[in-house]
Design a protein around this nucleic acid. Structure first.
Lengths: 173, 173
DNA sequence: CAAAAAAAGTTTGAGCTTGAAATATATTTT
DNA sequence: AAAATATATTTCAAGCTCAAACTTTTTTTG
């Protein structure tokens, strides 16, 4: 919103501040798009949080952590985990602490290195995650139900481009 | 991820669990799309948070509140504010408290009703927001730079559809 | 090898977020 | 007028989030 006229315009056709260069127009349209993208994402996220809470007594961050661990049978080190999820180290500590309390994951000492530990899903954790993941996929299809297969593919590609535009380290274990 | 075969399939052509109905395919593709959409949104949000913090010592929630207030010269009641932003009541209380401390907004008593108060931007708040909003638009264009005007329009429309699919009260002041 | 640097994790402090409970005030019913 | 109900907002507890500070351990290097 707001954002006056653009000083870098090449053709000052009109002297009024209401002048709109093509650059402005694109900028405004991208802003509009972003606001809608943010709103859509938040809506879907809110719905997911709500269902995860009601139906599984869990949260999205916990789900994210378990999803990451589910992809690595050998477990992940804390630093690798926060790297994969792209959240801060300290953040993951707390979430894993709670998952450990509930018996969904374990911290296994790494033999050679007394600093590090591998975080791994327990059997209970794997089972809980399997149930949640299945529900999760169903919810997404429900929430994005009117997006066709082809359209979804198109969107995925476009989002990939956006992701790649920003710096994308994407480190592994 | 995970999500075994779909029980509701109409044609059990293959007895194996690896069977994939068109319904499965679309479901998986939508999940893929959602994960990318979430990732993109988080990337952009993270970038915005970072810049807002560094350049203005502020946060996205504060910015959101100020943006909402900027659209209502007469101010908004707390309940209307949380309604517009679609966040909990208690949430807004804290954010507004901090904005008041910094002199960016004020709480004005509503004449007829001693329960309610109107939250309004101060001059300082309006000026701060104007600067932030301008930078914000620039950042968005930077972050979504390779999205063309037409493409942005298309995305906007599509997101609108997603938003409309979920319940959309959108109350006003 | 000892000092310095780097790496793995945790802790801390401040802020955001929610849902539920508490408070206060208004309005409606009885 | 008293009681019940509705509305406006705050408080609270639990959890998520980050950046920065801090331990402990390992690796590098002079």
């Amino acid at each position: 919103m707001i954002a006056e006229n653009d000083v870098t315009q090449t053709k000052p056709d009109s002297p009024l501040p209401e002048t709109e260069t093509p650059r402005d127009a694109a900028s405004k349209e991208r802003l509009r798009m972003w606001l809608r993208m943010l709103k859509s994402t938040r809506r879907v996220e809110a719905a997911l949080r709500d269902r995860l809470r009601r139906e599984f007594g869990s949260t999205l961050p916990r789900f994210d952590v378990m999803a990451a661990l589910a992809r690595y049978d050998d477990g992940l080190k804390m630093s690798a985990l926060s790297g994969v999820l792209r959240v801060s180290n300290g953040n993951v500590t707390g979430i894993v602490d709670r998952l450990v309390e509930e018996g969904l994951v374990v911290r296994v000492q790494v033999p050679g290195d007394r600093r590090a530990s591998l975080v791994r899903l327990t059997r209970k954790g794997r089972e809980a995650f399997a149930r949640q993941a299945e529900a999760h996929e169903t919810w997404i299809s429900e929430l994005l139900g009117d997006v066709s297969l082809d359209e979804a593919r198109m969107f995925s590609d476009r989002f990939d481009a956006i992701i790649k535009t920003d710096t994308d380290p994407e480190q592994t274990a």
